[in-house]
Amino acid sequence: MKKIAVILSHSPFDGAISREAHDMIMALAAVEHQVTVIYQDAAVLQLLPIRRSAALGCKDYTPAQKLFELYEVAAVVADACALQLYQILPEQCLITVTVMSDQAIQALLAQQQHILRF
């Protein structure tokens, strides 16, 4: 078991990056790693449902994030600045997130054994 942080920083519309990152998070958690997910920058948009996904020609894969809880992902963190920048309130998010400052995230990262960035 390792402490692994997965940093998400891309918009949900930026190719397969976010979607495959979600799969990676679930795969890591499924084999009992202690996974911390961190939403930064445009990735906070992943926390909102993709409306009119059919019109965009992509699948709305955002509901799969609700599985993080079932997979026992240890912590789900959203960057306070990013939420503010994109004007997203924690209560609008699909899943429960812990809002943290850059400084707190930095401290959290220092505790990890592995870090993957998507």
């Binding site: 390792k2 990676m24 795969a27 890591l28 499924a30 084999v31 592995h114 870090i115 960035r117």
Partner: peptide
């Protein structure tokens, strides 16, 4: 391979370089 195999292998790994 699968993501599951990658995830399991990380147990024996000290450093992941991306």
């Amino acid at each position: 391979a699968g993501l599951a195999e990658f995830a399991m292998r990380l147990d024996a790994v000290d450093q992941v370089v991306q």
